[in-house]
């Protein structure tokens, strides 16, 4: 029984997308531009050559935020979306009716339709693959060249993530929506 979260040292990110591929290979995610559990966003750099605004070119890795108050869970008519025992937001594909309400409700664009099961899929924190085998890292974390990600138990005061969040300033995405994300961006 843990409360899993992830801290992202996002300034390290070089937009290499190793995380995206590792996730797809580990979790058997389909190919296709729309089918990703995890992604890295970039903005078009501002300014005119050669006076470009370097700061505007930051990369922002993202995925399901595993919200504590997940809008996707609230709106699910059959409770197909649920919190598992580790507070990971999961989808039970047997119960999913593909009404797509959660896709509309998730403020982070974290959900997509898996065409094979025709149900909604999303990041599972590798719960049914790596964690189920007793591993302690997620695929996206393990592979990252610049070690952006630290995954761990927020309830364990001695975990590395707890330590990071105690000692480093951080923010969450769209925090004003009250979703209480469990992805933390370290500054």
């Amino acid at each position: 029984m843990a409360r899993y979260g992830m801290a992202l040292d996002y300034k390290n990110c070089i937009n290499c997308k190793a995380c995206e591929v590792a996730c797809k290979e580990e979790n058997g995610v389909e190919l296709g531009a729309e089918k990703h559990r995890i992604w890295v966003g970039a903005n078009d750099v501002k300014g005119e050559w050669p006076l470009l605004d370097i700061a505007s070119a930051a990369f922002l890795p993202s995925q399901c935020q595993h919200c504590e108050d997940a809008p996707c869970q609230e709106v699910c008519p059959t409770n197909a979306t649920y919190y598992d025992e580790n507070h990971v937001v999961r989808v039970d594909s047997d119960k999913c009716i593909l009404c797509s309400y959660c896709m509309n409700a998730c403020p982070y664009d974290a959900r997509y339709v898996d065409d094979r099961t025709m149900t909604v899929d999303k990041c599972t924190f590798c719960s049914d693959t790596r964690l189920a085998r007793g591993e302690t890292t997620t695929a996206c974390q393990a592979t990252c060249p610049t070690k952006v990600r630290t995954f761990g138990d927020l309830d364990d005061p001695n975990s590395e993530i707890s330590e990071l969040l105690r000692t480093r300033e951080h923010f969450s995405l769209k925090a004003h929506l009250g979703t209480n994300p469990k992805l933390f961006y370290l500054t």
Binding site: C16, K17, A18, E20, V21, A22, E25, T143, C144, P145
Partner: peptide, 12 residues
């Protein structure tokens, strides 16, 4: 040092 990039992961 414990990393594989996108291409390395896609080697399969």
């Amino acid at each position: 040092r414990n990393m594989l990039c996108a291409r390395g992961n896609a080697g399969i």
